[in-house]
Design a protein around this nucleic acid. Sequence first.
DNA 1: CATGATGACGCT
DNA 2: AGCGTCAT
Length: 699
Amino acid sequence: MPVAKPESCDSRVIAHIDMDCFYVQVEQRKQPQLRGLPTAVVQYNEWKGGALIAVSYEARKFGVKRSMRGEEAKEVCPQIHLVQVPVARGKADLNGYRNAGSEVMSILARRGRCERASIDEVYLDLTDAAETMLAEAPPQHLEAIDEEALKSHILGLNNEDGSDVKEIVRNWIHRCHADHRDKLLACGILIVAELRMQVLKETEFTCSAGIAHNKMLAKLASGMNKPAQQTVVPFSSVQGLLNSLPIRKMKQLGGKLGMSLQIDMGVNTVGDLLQFSEEKLQERYGLNTGTWLWNIARGINGEAVEGRLLPKSHGSGKTFPGPRALKTVSAVQHWLNQLCEELSERLCSDLEQNKRIAHTLTLHARAYKSSDSDSEKKFPSKSCPLRYGTAKIQEDAFNLFQAGLREYIGLYGVKSQGSHYSRWGITSLSVSASKIVPIPSGTCSIVKYFHWQSSSHFSSIQSAENLRMDATHLSPPGNESYSEVGLPEPKIHFPGEDSWIEDTTPGLGLQEQKINVWKDEDLSCSPSKKKVDGFTEDTSPLLLSGTQGCLEQNQNKQQREFSKDESRFKSEYREQKGTRLKNKGTSSILKFFKSCNPSGTSLSQEHDRTVQGTDAQLTNGAGFQSSCHNLAELNEVEVAKENGTSSHSYIRDQDEWRREAWSYNINEIDPSVIDELPMEIQDEIQAWLRPRKRPNNIV
DNA sequence: CATGATGACGCT
DNA sequence: AGCGTCAT
């Protein structure tokens, strides 16, 4: 449900940039002979010519639409050129488009806060840039204005007669008696026109843009004149625009909510919403959504442009429609392995390029079950802590699937497949990685240190009791739900056609798995990777060079969530702190990383701040794939923290650890603690301390 | 069980 | 954590 947010400032300048039939453009750049021709991108063409996922404007003239099948497209447009999405591991591979999207992002991020809305859409907050321009080089003093800016569409401008449109636009931009808000938009026009030209020049991609005072209006405007054009919504034309706008055209109202508005309330245009009081809307749709609707009707939308250039999650999925549904567990396992391979690769790239790690692995599936009453039941999604390394992800994902399948088929059936009881089929599978957070700079050697520290700590200090608990945490999550409720742990076997559930008793098996955690298997993400000594030597130039380009930014949301959680966390933390330290505070490194941070200054924030200043480079990913061979250590840091904070659910431990580990005030570090660290770590701490003082003086 | 693959986000 | 909605 949409939620209302207060406006941050009197008059913002917001742009929404939308790439024109993006996938088509990417393919046309690869094959320039396709430019200007009716073209579409299809994925898979076995069944009815594949599904269209992008259609060029030339092809749209023939009535070709997204979601048509390739064969249908050929019927209405026989000359159409169909380009297939690359396939890797038996599934569509969108990485080429992701990388192309990153190229665009890095250009658009130059002029202001920039939010990646999707692979081909971006919001920009150009308020500051516009204010600056207005103060230093206002449009009315600009003699020459970009040809591109003059092609802008200005909503509400009476340009229907035969007069020269460009001249009208020029006059509008130049008006010196204009309202301050319009002057800001005029600056926005110039800035966006320039950005779009830069995008075209540097990437060969065209895009369309909307410029307005908020995200909703900018998004609305960007779609009004495509392709390769920009549209402005002056304040004075907002109501006129909205009054006649069909309600379902509004973002967020294209689904059930919009339908309910139409059916239940008789609201057909946004203007129709004006009749209803805020209370009435709240009564019908809840406080948040009600207020949001009331605001929308008035063109009010306070949503901020988040500074976020990178996705918050990565997913890899595939559907198995109709007769392709997966009917055996081993078929599922095969496809899960493919999906996990891709996911792991992308996580690896994210780690290298952006210095981020994901913390949660989630499995989604859709299934049907015939012959039983509850064939409607949804397949449950399951998640668990994410361990890096392809094999580990595969193993965990498979266990998540088995846990889901057990729930899905229910406990009644001993025999579940191959007999007449209930026949299931998996029609869609996906794995995703979320809770992605930046690694503080310099974590490399810290991580290595933990590798050493946690190993010794584990083997020498950990009690047998804690060992079992950690085994619960770390063992594949399929076991977890069972151990939670204290049930014995059924396993599904799949020797071919049939699968069945069998009771097993938990015992040594868990500990054996625990041991496995420490073995590094299959952690490489690139074929060129060579495993060194498995211990410390970090030969990765990418990880060593502090300046390696990251598409980083001020991870706005994440920062806020961190600090927001912090206060809540602090009270909880204090009440548990004593006992925890008493239990396991034998190593001062752990205490060191536990020391709380009263001032609220966190290393992760500092990290964001420093990285923000660096030149954002969106590495192409295609260029080179260097190795990620310290992924094992990443996993082991997770283990270390759980050792330090066990006796709670692993979920809380995960969050606590991050706060405890990185949210401390660096000024309050006891120097004697630093002395206990190895030399290389000490150096790094010094490196943190030194530059840290600067911002206060400079800024 | 033929709009496929991905994402973001809100509710509980 | 898990589910549902919405978008492209």
